[in-house]
């Protein structure tokens, strides 16, 4: 997938959670929810958040290896919970 961070082949095959770039629908995920999520996950990776048209692009760098597989999925889950609880 475009924007995927270079990952060693051995780790890439073991990875289930997929890309290190996450694209989220801007109609669903609010900026406030994503900012709160970014702050909550800041200790696990360097997270860049950008609006690109109707989507948010979240790029993860310097990811803690212990959570690399789960990070994008958990990030999206946390953002959704912030969206639901905060709305």
């Amino acid at each position: 997938m475009a924007g995927r961070e270079s990952v060693p082949a051995s780790r890439r095959s073991a990875s289930r959670a997929g890309p290190r770039v996450l694209r989220l629908d801007a109609d669903i995920y609010t900026e406030e929810a994503l900012e709160r999520t970014r702050r909550a996950f800041a200790h696990l990776a360097a997270i860049d958040l950008r609006r690109e048209g109707k989507r948010w692009t979240v790029r993860f760098a310097r990811v803690d290896p212990a959570v690399a597989d789960r990070l994008p999925g958990e990030f999206a889950n946390y953002a959704l919970s912030c969206r639901v609880v905060g709305s």
Binding site: A17, D25, N77, L80, S81, V84
Partner: peptide, 14 residues
């Protein structure tokens, strides 16, 4: 969808 966050990775799109 919120109710499934504990056991699933959930993504919602329009």
């Amino acid at each position: 969808a919120y109710r499934f966050l504990d056991r699933c990775y959930v993504r919602v799109e329009t």
